[in-house]
Simulated assay, not measured.
Amino acid sequence: MDSTRHPEYPPHAPLPAQTDPGLDDLEYHHAPGTRVFHRARQRGADVTAWGRLALQMPGFLLSLGVVVLVALLVDAWVGLPYWLPTALWLASGTLAFHRPSERFLARHLLGLQRPLPHELAHLTPVWREVSARAGIDGSRYELWIEDSPQLNAYAAAGHIVGVTRHAVEKLPKSQLAAVLAHELGHHTGGHAWAGLLGWWYGLPGRITWRTLAHAVVRTIRLTMRHSLPGAALLVLALGLLACLTVKATYGLPLLLLLVPCLMAALARRAELRADAHAAVLGFAPVLAAMLLDVMARDERRAELTAPPRYAFARSGPLVRLLATHPDHRTRLHHLEPYLRSRGQTP
């Protein structure tokens, strides 16, 4: 289909003309006005997205119980039907794809800003090239800027692609395109909306759990100030209650201890899938070069600042197990097939 639309931006920011490919390092294949074919299926949900949602089901059920309990209390006090706030909470997840709600999230929760005219002029042709290569309608997504000196980018909600001002100003266009292609892979794979929905529907349960934990710790501390034996009995009673709960549920609550590790493993897999998405679009050599550069800088920084014992602790087994991003060598290893197909090696 013919497509010349661009992402929605403030009217004062004009759309730039196509950059001459000879003036930068990004090879453009889709100039404005040319025919761009969009895929029939613009987004989906891969195994990592569904896996994250499945792992967050216990948190969702806990949150649902909390919401129903609060709704029943409101029903008893005010007379508001308990099913109404419960239904509203269940339906609230659709706001993850509601544009005004996404903009509120971007501005007030993620601390993002709309691109300035010169930033927009830099980003628009790069984003158009990336989305056109993927067969995705780029006008469905909105580019945002994070005022940060760090090199970072992320996908959020249903249509947000955020990139730091440092990345916009310092990265060559080919590297910026690779970063945007990676984030687009998070959107097309369903990673962004699955993460947001899991976080939102687990929020009541997390708040309740942390409130109870804080109350228990505070109660134990207050008891210790007046009577150490009383505090010991309280701890013993809580431990006995926990053991009885685990026994009555056949040890199922112990499985919840594995959830953070499994969630981290799925997050790492999602990052590798996003890398693969960018590699399929032709950015494997650029990604590999960026990773090698980051590895070299990290090694130089570690030699100058980190003592060996600290470096070992920082990269210990537990840290690696709970890491949400794979290490650079793992990412390079998964890029090798795409590099070999182009006759290149990392």
Rank of each mutant, 00 (worst) to 15 (best):
G135V: 05
M263L: 13
L73K: 03
P285D: 05
H12W: 10
R300K: 11
A96P: 03
H122P: 03
L281I: 10
V68Y: 09
Q42I: 06
A167D: 05
V168K: 02
A96V: 15
L254P: 00
H277T: 03
A49R: 05
E336K: 14
P117Y: 10
L123W: 11
R314V: 13
D20S: 11
Q113H: 15
A31S: 11
L53C: 03
R43P: 02
Q344G: 02
W200I: 06
E119D: 06
T345Y: 10
Y338T: 04
G282H: 07
P307M: 10
R314M: 14
H328M: 09
R273N: 04
R114M: 12
L203V: 01
P100F: 12
A155M: 09
V294N: 13
A232H: 08
G59V: 06
L171G: 02
H12I: 02
T86C: 15
W77F: 12
A313T: 04
P117G: 12
E102G: 02
G202T: 09
L64F: 13
S341W: 06
G189Q: 06
A276M: 01
A264R: 03
L236T: 15
G44D: 12
A323G: 03
P32C: 06
G230C: 09
T211N: 03
R206T: 14
V168W: 12
A106V: 04
L61S: 08
R103L: 08
P16C: 07
G65E: 02
D275A: 05
P346Y: 09
N152L: 08
F60H: 06
R225H: 09
F283K: 02
A134L: 11
L72P: 01
A279I: 08
L26K: 07
P115G: 07
L123E: 00
I145Q: 03
Q344D: 07
G162A: 15
D46P: 03
A288P: 08
E303Q: 13
A87C: 10
L291S: 14
T19K: 04
T223A: 15
L292F: 06
E146L: 11
S341L: 14
Y250R: 15
P58V: 12
C261T: 09
